[in-house]
Design a protein around this nucleic acid. Structure first.
Lengths: 351, 351
DNA sequence: TCAATATACTGAAACGTTACAGATGCCAAT
DNA sequence: ATTGGCATCTGTAACGTTTCAGTATATTGA
């Protein structure tokens, strides 16, 4: 009983999907030649090259990713490593969109590699490096001495960090200038006559915690205002925790008349806490907050805001990783975005 | 200029990473046997199986994804297809987290496949199917007659939709019962004496637009209240558009005394519009809104809310796709979440 | 006793790609 | 005529996996 269709190399009939062999048969060339013609190798005749590329486009040839990956080790994948419970919400989608935007023009796919509470942040990184599941990695929640960055550097895995490190190692990053943000915020509050300022900081441990604190402190001494300690909470705490702590502080005799908040969601909690204490935003106290989408003005028009663009961060990070993969010097792939300045949400006249 | 290590089949020394061949050498077996022992094939001796699996664990063997994919066509990838400019923010990250949570227990990776304005929503789907880049797909923004679902069904690509279709075709889905939501919202407003209700609906075209409208209409007739047309905007419009339109409507003689809003961000705009018109939430008008994270109560305690859990949606969708891939009947992988009921954000006594 | 059958294992081939090491033909320089 | 160089093309092997078609060895049935 002979087998129906051996189909071993029946060049003839409908394959599921064109491969190099299909193209080779159609053009009458060898698969090597076809492979080379498609990637503009120098030793292919101009005429042949054109013919192959034409046919390839005609029949909609797409290289098989598994084939390429198996042969070359190149995955055409960028991994975005995310903390599944700590990352602030809107943040993530914006970054993803920014990254996608850039990768869409390339053969790269974006995979999201999560890690969650109680997990070692190194674990997803080790996984990616050991299994070679990606050609490049993007991480966030960057620390001054970040073991993930060090590890990837040691193992030759291209990456970019959202936020800087401070280990004397050079690698691509995208960062928002939180030192400048904190300074501007303090200056603005001081210019409104506020002198007792509190800072709701990023979580200690992350690099921009330090940047923010330093900016805050630097500006304080510049404008001769005082800090009201508010460091038992950070933007990583729950809304409820921040709200209660704010209310508590606001009921003291010596209470803040100005807040600097590093995240929009936390700002909602601060304002709620202020009002819990029976005080009024804009009269008793002013708040400068970062925001990543333009919603705070709907909440309280008296708020002062600084915008941080996470979509830009995403596309910047993606470009940096691709650049490194493409052989650019990692030191040339760093960007620091300086705040656009503090904006009042309503004209003082209308207030 | 030394080549890495020729290492053709030097069984001896440190390969970059263990493969079946490594295991075969270590155990003294053939690679076929090793392959089978690892996947509990029946024709392998119990003792051998145990031995192989032990060694594999010891040296941290991980199957090479490219090898498996090339040989079997199985990608171990689930793709989440997202509209890059229309999707509401927080929404996306929650879904991603939900999906990740489920995939983390499996060998599956999550890839995010974006499409943007001006692009045919079918394009990413066709890409995924034609290139076989995923074993399963999750889509959102589902339409009653959804060409993407039809296409994937025709091409045997397992998928799950966020939201139902209405084509007489059976496939996995996860949906929030927006009919029930709208009914509950109207009932609640009616019970507070509100009789002139406006609905800020989902964008027309999506399936849950119809569900919401029907629920709204059904409850209206039940409680004998009236609809104030508000259908020139939807939650896909900008904050500014919704705000202006709300203000406009609220300045009329016959204006709504109740709103039902299908999205939290839009609710901010509605309230802003109400206040633009010089009216007061809770006195002149009440608003029932969906929300996916618990923030609206900070905005205005007078708001009434219904919670929709997108993280649950994500994990449900992931489980469904995996189930279908695993051979379960698509009809058995459908879930409809009914609203938890309208919640007042503050006790009436305190208000 | 011999064959049939089950058990436990194995080599070779194939998936689609790229790199290596040639082929082949042609032309200019010797 | 021979050599060398150049331009253009080609076959084979390998990446790591699974599947097909076996091969031994032991076990059973008559």
């Amino acid at each position: 009983m002979d087998r129906q269709r051996t189909d071993k190399n029946e060049e003839t009939s409908a394959q599921g999907r064109p491969t190099l062999k299909t193209l080779a048969f159609m053009t009458g060339l060898g698969v090597t030649t076809v492979s080379r013609a498609l990637k503009d190798a120098p030793e292919i005749g101009a005429e042949t090259r054109r013919r192959v590329q034409l046919v390839a486009k005609q029949i909609g040839y797409r290289p098989n990713r598994a084939g390429v990956r198996l042969r070359t080790g190149r995955t055409n994948v960028i991994s975005l490593v995310l903390n599944t419970d700590r990352e602030i919400m809107s943040f993530v989608s914006d970054i993803i969109y920014g990254v996608s935007e850039v990768l869409a023009e390339t053969p790269y796919h974006l995979i999201v590699t999560p890690y969650s509470r109680s997990q070692d942040p190194m674990e997803p990184i080790r996984y990616l490096v050991e299994t070679g599941s990606a050609d490049g990695v993007i991480i966030s929640r960057t620390q001054p001495n970040d073991p993930r960055a060090r590890y990837m550097l040691e193992h030759g895995m291209p990456f970019a960090t959202h936020g800087r490190t401070d280990m004397g190692l050079v690698h691509p990053y995208h960062d928002f200038d939180n030192h400048a943000f904190a300074m501007e915020a303090v200056r603005r509050l001081a210019s409104m006559g506020r002198r007792r300022l509190a800072l709701l900081s990023p979580p200690p441990g992350l690099t921009y915690y330090g940047h923010t604190l330093n900016g805050f402190a630097d500006a304080l001494s510049e404008v001769d205002a005082n800090e009201i300690p508010f460091n038992t909470v950070s933007i990583d705490h729950t809304i409820e925790q921040i709200r209660m702590r704010t209310a508590q502080v606001m009921r003291r005799d010596v209470r803040p008349d100005g807040f600097v908040s590093s995240a929009a969601a936390a700002t909602l909690a601060i304002v709620a806490g202020i009002e819990d204490a029976g005080l009024k935003l804009g009269r008793d106290v002013d708040v400068v907050s970062k925001q990543s989408s333009d919603l705070l003005h709907l909440f309280r028009p008296e708020l002062l805001v600084v915008n941080e663009n996470f979509r830009l961060a995403g596309s910047d990070l993606a470009r940096s990783v691709l650049g490194w993969i493409g052989g650019a010097a990692p030191g040339s792939l760093q960007s620091l975005v300086v705040a656009s300045g503090v904006q009042a949400l309503t004209q003082p006249l209308l207030a």
